[in-house]
Design a binder for these strands. Structure first.
Lengths: 342, 342
DNA sequence: ACCGCCTTTTAAACCGGTTCAAGTCCCGGT
DNA sequence: ACCGGGACTTGAACCGGTTTAAAAGGCGGT
């Protein structure tokens, strides 16, 4: 395997200096057309591609962005958001030949990971997703001088550019939909409270109840997991006055909740209505099919990547507000059961 | 924001040459202990971390490995394998401070992506997963001189180091389990035939039938999707003599299949037994719960990463055979229905 | 006092690009 | 014939590390 060609080889073959080759490569004006062609064909003839590392060293840009996934390893596979989100990122950055560096971390190591990412200058910028309450990362990246884009935190008190999708309207729609079906006792099974998006969804549910003139409903933690959703559902159904509808923080816990309800002898949606969140591929294939909220993670990824590129190149970017998620009504929601009181 | 310190700054503060700092950094023998300490404390005082790009340029190693996901964007989110697999990879490579470059591609662009990865020398090696029949990639990486590890193709005719998990025993166990329950007509809903692992699983099912002295069963394509699984299930149930059990290529199509069967009025497992593959988090929460085959994608990732590191560093690695997947028996399999003929 | 040898340190080349100040050429104007 | 200026090119420094060959220092032996 012969040594791969360098810019010097191309320069020599084209009969020009290395500087000229570099200019041609970067489409810098001021190179005669004939020269450009000579350089190009020389490069092609030798099969030359500029070395990433050399470029990175002299330009100071790594031409890569970083995504740190901070979740428990088991949880990471259950969320269809990230693969789609990453696909969206890729579709933008690959246009300019940039790459995506993936890091996984436990919630604890997180800060360390970002520090290393910044210290190494291995990436030119990072995405901050799954933002938590009192998240140390916005401040950290600011301190480190690491370009960053916040994904999905509506309160832009961070000072960082944000790409946001407001979950509240769709949750409100879901509650309204249930209210229209006659439900008055609508419970909520929430995701981890430390996530601002989980908290926001729960708040939207509470607000929607109030808006409909209903008393505050019951909210239980479901942790975005199947087990958590199941446990919360059991607890809700064991109450003296179980709710007639349950809204879940995600499809995973909703599906587990449906199973629990059916095991308890309830028929869905006759005895209990269920709403999920995410619209996972399976949601159309549960029985009954799952009414849920659908966002577009690929578009998130695209928007986030575009914003990050802008921050990296121009130092700042305008916030982006994505189209809200939509309510997908399927078979798991139905009229309130005629039962007991009133 | 002050310019970040370089090796020269450290050298100056420690009162030594840059070479010495470099030696200390790389734990090279032949530096006096006192000097090492002076260098170390100087580095710490300045908060110096060596620049990745500079190192990459002079050592010729990018200190990163690449994973190319070649699936349709929609499909990518449905497979819990990859996130866990990546977590496994990360856990190994992050020990040495290496990174994971993620690339997504459509089946068509694939070859181009690998070429670019190799040309850029942006990664030191790649994983080859979802190996297909007549896959061009093994030959390609060999030609490109790009270190690679094949993940999950048992026929090591590629000449490349392979990390393999033989699905056949567990599929065989699944069929046996069904045969013991009295089933004689066991159908199969397969993944895309171009994937060697999908094909292998189907073959294992066929072999197990033969081994049990049963006539060849019916196999239909399910494409590893929910829709495909549903369609195939419908087709199977519409037959004059529908099977009493169906084995699916993955949990996604199995779950969709269960829904179809239940919609058709069948009770599971009384009228139909179902076996999946993957053991997705939801498998314990369908109704009935899903009997399925469980592998350990995190261990795959670890083993694959270790093998790849070995190839990169030593030029070659020994093949690894992982512990086979296990059969998880849950509620979706039961005794054959007493029905019709015989 | 001199030598050989071992340990420690360093100067300088190198990795492969980018960039800028300083050329070189050529041409039209006077 | 000479000059100014625009269009192209290029030499050389630089990015921040690694590496090698050689120098410097220390020490016991004769």
């Amino acid at each position: 395997m012969a040594r791969r060609p360098t810019i010097a080889d191309v320069a020599q073959l084209a009969g020009v200096s290395r500087a000229t080759v570099s200019f041609v490569l970067n489409n810098r004006p001021g190179v005669a057309l004939a020269t450009q062609q000579r350089v190009r064909s020389a490069a092609e003839k030798l099969g030359w591609t500029p070395s990433r590392s050399a470029r990175a060293l002299s330009t100071g840009r790594a031409r890569a962005v970083g995504l740190v996934l901070t979740r428990e390893p088991d949880l990471i596979g259950t969320d269809p958001f990230y693969p789609a989100f990453m696909a969206g990122i890729e579709s933008v950055i690959s246009e300019t030949g940039d790459g995506l560096m993936l890091q996984m971390s436990r919630p604890g190591d997180e800060v360390e990971i970002y520090r290393r990412l910044a210290a190494d200058r291995r990436v030119d910028g990072v995405f901050l997703s799954d933002v938590r309450l009192d998240d140390p990362r916005p401040e950290l990246v600011t301190e480190l001088g690491l370009p960053a884009v916040v994904v999905g935190a509506v309160e832009s008190e961070t000072g960082l550019p944000t790409v946001n999708l407001d979950d509240r309207p769709v949750v409100r729609n879901a509650v309204r939909h249930l209210v229209e079906l006659g439900h008055r006792d609508i419970a909520y099974v929430a995701g981890p409270e430390e996530f601002v998006h989980a908290r926001r969804r729960r708040q939207a549910w509470a607000d929607a109840l109030a808006e409909a003139g209903l008393p505050p409903g019951t909210s239980l933690p479901g942790g975005f997991t199947a087990e958590g959703g199941a446990r919360a559902t059991r607890a809700l159904l064991d109450r003296p006055n179980p709710p007639t509808a349950i809204v879940y923080g995600n499809d995973l816990s909703a599906t587990a909740g449906m199973a629990v309800a059916q095991d308890a002898g309830l028929r869905l949606p006759d005895d209990l209505s269920v709403v999920g969140f995410d619209d996972v591929p399976l949601a159309s294939w549960t029985s009954p099919t799952l009414t849920t909220c659908r966002a577009n993670p690929v578009l998130w990824g695209r928007a986030a990547a575009q914003a990050l590129v802008e921050v990296i190149e121009r130092g700042t970017a305008t916030d982006v507000e994505l189209d809200p998620a939509t309510l997908v009504i399927r078979g798991s929601t139905g009229s309130v059961p005629v039962r007991g009181s009133r």
